[in-house]
């Protein structure tokens, strides 16, 4: 089924994903939680998900609570291993990688924006942005120069030395976006990035997030339960009971 959903926000022009190769490709994903090793009750969070994410594309994963959308995001990002199925990134099956390699991949190729920013409260905005890059071995001076550019670009000039407690919710979330993008990731994963913000601030943060991903050529995978938030993405998949039940493309082109 192909349906065009109304777009609440002005949408950036995006490349046709069908023209580019998939940066992430999931096949027959199953993920069970529970006491499976001891024959106890299990809960099936993902029940055979197929999904491709093209380079520089934007995808929203929607659905009610407990439908498996956050689990899908965690499996796509290599945070959780699937019980069955595969997730390929640049030709490598993530589930075949040991934990340390998946952690390195998350640090280098992926960026994350959480619902409440999850910034380190003791660090300044600038230090929060440079931290993942320093963890990856980038010299502090280089990381700092890049981070200043990102913070300025996201409207945080003059706030580099403020700590998260001295920033508004929207400003803190912009810092989180700068942190996610500073390492030039291929994919940015966002889990309810505006869930803790009021509507106006949420809209502004979304515009920044989508625009920054588009400008840097990163794909965006965003989990949300809000159709208006999902509408900023070019593609939306709707989940129920661990499966994708519908897919929408904002341009009106369905698959």
């Amino acid at each position: 089924m192909t349906t065009a959903i109304p777009s609440t926000y002005r949408s950036p022009s995006e490349p046709d994903p069908s023209a580019g190769p998939a940066v992430l490709s999931a096949r027959s994903l199953v993920r069970d939680f529970g006491d499976s090793g001891r024959k106890g009750p299990t809960t099936r969070a993902l029940a055979g998900v197929d999904l491709d994410i093209a380079r520089a594309d934007s995808l929203a994963i929607m659905g009610p609570s407990g439908c498996g959308k956050t689990t899908l995001l965690h499996v796509l990002a290599g945070i959780l291993r699937p019980s069955a199925g595969t997730v390929h990134h640049d030709g490598t099956d993530l589930s075949s990688l040991p934990d340390a390699a998946r952690t390195r991949l998350r640090r280098g190729a992926f960026g994350f924006v959480f619902q409440e920013g999850r910034l380190l409260p003791e660090l300044t905005a600038l230090e929060n942005v440079i931290l993942p890059r320093m963890l990856a071995g980038t010299p502090r001076r280089t990381a700092t120069a890049d981070a200043r550019g990102w913070l300025d670009r996201l409207g945080l000039a003059g706030m580099h030395d403020r700590r998260p407690g001295q920033l508004s919710g929207g400003q803190a979330q912009r810092v989180a976006i700068a942190r996610a993008l500073a390492g030039r990731p291929q994919v940015v994963f966002a889990d309810e990035p505006t869930g803790a913000l009021d509507q106006a601030t949420g809209r502004s943060v979304l515009e920044v997030l989508v625009g920054a991903c588009r400008d840097s050529g990163a794909s965006l995978v965003m989990v949300t339960h809000d159709p208006q938030v999902a509408a900023v993405c070019r593609r939306t998949v709707a989940m129920r009971d661990g499966a994708i039940v519908q897919e929408f493309q904002r341009s009106g082109e369905g698959r």
């Binding site: 990002a77 945070i79 340390a100 952690t103 390195r104 991949l105 998350r106 640090r107 280098g108 992926f110 960026g111 994350f112 959480f114 999850r118 380190l120 409260p121 993942p132 963890l135 990856a136 942190r179 996610a180």
Partner: peptide, 16 residues
């Protein structure tokens, strides 16, 4: 713990 978990998700090794 919440911040440690978020750092690990974002790529910080447990050893780090």
């Amino acid at each position: 713990m919440p911040v440690l978990r978020a750092q690990h998700v974002a790529g910080a090794q447990v050893g780090q």
